[in-house]
């Protein structure tokens, strides 16, 4: 009984959560004039009257801004950025969570404080650095400055610190190096947290807009969100194309999440709890 209520509740929440997304996805199959046509409660409020693939044809056939090219660019940046980010941030997090050294607290606060500054306030000086490095219009500019992320370090610190110190001491006595302990003890015990960070880093990269806007001006190197934004003009927006491109753009992340979510299932088998 309790389970039935639970599943019903979950289903209702799922419907509410999905409503805006379904409206977007279904509207991507409408012609422009139809998107805002229906204003009364009814079947066609969500379901298109005349289904069309025109928006999808349009986004892939745009000569100036082919969506597939942008998806590949973004995929490259996202994968590289996520991999490097996980490595660098988990190293630092491990050290903050499990190692003893002077100035730890101060250093940690310095890291954390970088989350408190609005990006708009440091965007221009950051841009100048990229310019001075000669990185404008390169993928490096989209990857390297954002590898370190105090958010990720903070997240992993919370999980690494749950690892019992005794386990680490034992490994030390066995003569394991810190690097070995990191890879053999810390990482295997924290997969859910690392996967979580990986997913959010990936999504963050996939969402990149403002920074890409200013450091990349070469059309061929542009990222996906810029392409989506480019369907909005000064005087009007092709909502059908925006929705179609957004739908396509969310597929890769969704697949990755579906594949990786087994790491969130509680490890120990449940018994006797209903």
């Amino acid at each position: 009984m309790l389970n039935v209520i639970k599943v019903m509740l979950m289903t209702v929440i799922a419907f509410i959560v999905l409503l805006p997304v379904s409206w977007m996805v279904l509207s991507s199959f409408r012609l422009e004039e139809e998107i805002f046509k229906f204003t009364e409660l009814g079947y066609h409020l969500l379901i298109p009257e005349n289904w069309t693939l025109q928006n999808y044809r349009d986004i892939f056939s745009e000569n100036q801004r082919p969506l597939d090219r942008y998806m590949l660019n973004t995929l490259f940046i996202a994968v590289t950025g996520t991999f490097l980010g996980l490595l660098v941030n988990s190293f630092a997090a491990f050290s903050f969570a499990k190692m003893r050294f002077p100035l730890k607290r101060s250093l940690f606060v310095i890291f954390l404080s970088t989350l408190a500054i609005p990006f708009e306030a440091i965007m221009v000086p950051q841009y100048m650095i990229i310019r001075d490095f000669g990185w404008l219009d390169t993928y490096t500019a989209l990857i390297v400055p954002q590898i370190v992320w105090a958010f990720g370090i903070f997240l992993l610190v919370q999980f690494f610190s749950d690892i019992p110190r005794s386990l680490i001491e034992a490994a030390r006595i066995d003569g394991a190096s810190w690097l070995t302990i990191f890879f053999r003890v810390a990482v295997p015990m924290s997969w859910p947290a690392i996967i979580t960070l990986g997913i959010i880093t990936f999504v963050g990269k996939w969402d990149e807009f403002l920074w890409a806007l200013i450091v990349i001006s070469d059309d061929a190197k542009q990222v996906i969100q810029i392409a989506i934004a480019s369907y909005s003009l000064e005087t009007y927006t092709s909502w059908g194309m925006v929705f179609a491109a957004s739908t396509i753009a969310s597929i890769p992340t969704m697949i990755i999440f579906l594949l990786l979510q087994k790491y969130y299932i509680q490890g120990v088998t449940t018994s006797g709890i209903k």
């Binding site: 490595l87 660098v88 941030n89 190293f91 630092a92 491990f94 050290s95 903050f96 190692m99 250093l107 310095i110 890291f111 970088t114 390297v144 400055p145 590898i147 370190v148 105090a150 370090i153 810190w178 990191f182």
Partner: peptide, 9 residues
């Protein structure tokens, strides 16, 4: 361990 992160930061 912290160095790469700190350098980039």
């Amino acid at each position: 361990f912290i160095l790469p992160a700190f350098g980039l930061l």
